[in-house]
Design a protein around this nucleic acid. Structure first.
Lengths: 151, 151
DNA sequence: GCACTCCTGACCAAGAAGGTCAGGAAAGTC
DNA sequence: GACTTTCCTGACCTTCTTGGTCAGGAGTGC
């Protein structure tokens, strides 16, 4: 139930791309802007490219850019691209698990967990992230001061 | 963003304990009921004991039982006991991370992610799980057929 | 004393996390 | 065509986590 460095880096780099007006952005600039090790970032960007989220061109004047408009790319997509499916249990999707005995209803709980994650991650687009105008669901959740304290 | 085998096992074993009317339950019985490797389960139960969720007695007639009533133990507690804090980013709590540049608002997103996880995991108690009468939030989330399909 | 059950630490193999390194391959510039 | 720039790719590395197993010790009850 944790967010990996890779996913965090990927979203941050994508946010920088979303904010770039036009033209490709060099990996080096992304790395500096978000303080990410360059060579590690290049691997991440490659994965994003393979997933059709980002495009790239080599050579002088080369760099990376978003394959789609920033308001059509969600955080969920990016996290999935680098971390794989969200909220899998023991590496299998919750809908495929058969629980027995008194844990029979645990499946519903994991399904609800996944749905609640999706309700946040699939709503927030890169455009939202850059503009700071986050969707209502995020505002509702972060409005409670309790959301900001550790447990 | 995945649920470990350990957390899954821990919740399942705890559900069995919650369902046991009275008297200690042997580790072996829990392991059989939920099909969990016994020796691994014993380590998990020990962690739950150290977190004050479970109690135990050795010897004949020994076994494990819940330290508190089943309707006062949440799934969140159990997951935290064996997996550590929920929704940490790069092993640090989201409220402690300072984002820069165009990723400035990413913090709000991770906070919202954590809050949405909590809204499920802290609502469901072991009593809910055993009875199958899950809290409203779970019902709402699992009612949507979309919640049951992979992405 | 003996059986039973939990308790604990050591160990282990495989994989993931979080990188680094070295070189190749396209694209643009002169 | 040479040269620079930048992405592309695979190999490698160290440390930690995951998901266990093994062996023995220590209470508890009869």
């Amino acid at each position: 139930m944790r967010v990996s460095a890779k996913a965090d880096y990927a979203v941050r780099a994508a946010a920088e791309l979303a904010a770039a007006d036009e033209g490709p952005v060099k990996g080096e600039r992304l790395a500096e802007a978000q303080d990410i090790p360059l060579q590690f970032l290049e691997h991440i960007l490659l994965e994003l490219k393979h997933h059709g989220i980002v495009r790239a061109r080599r050579g002088a004047k080369g760099g990376y850019w978003l394959a789609r408009p920033a308001d059509e790319v969600t955080v969920a997509e990016i996290v999935r691209a680098v971390e794989g499916p969200i909220a899998h249990v023991q590496s299998t999707p919750p809908e495929d698990i058969a629980y027995r005995g008194n844990a029979a209803h645990l499946q519903d709980v994991w399904i609800a967990v996944r749905a609640s994650l999706r309700s946040v991650l699939e709503e927030v687009t890169l455009a939202d992230l850059v503009s700071g105008e986050l969707p209502g669901v995020v505002g509702d959740l972060t409005a409670d001061p309790d959301a900001w304290v550790a447990r």
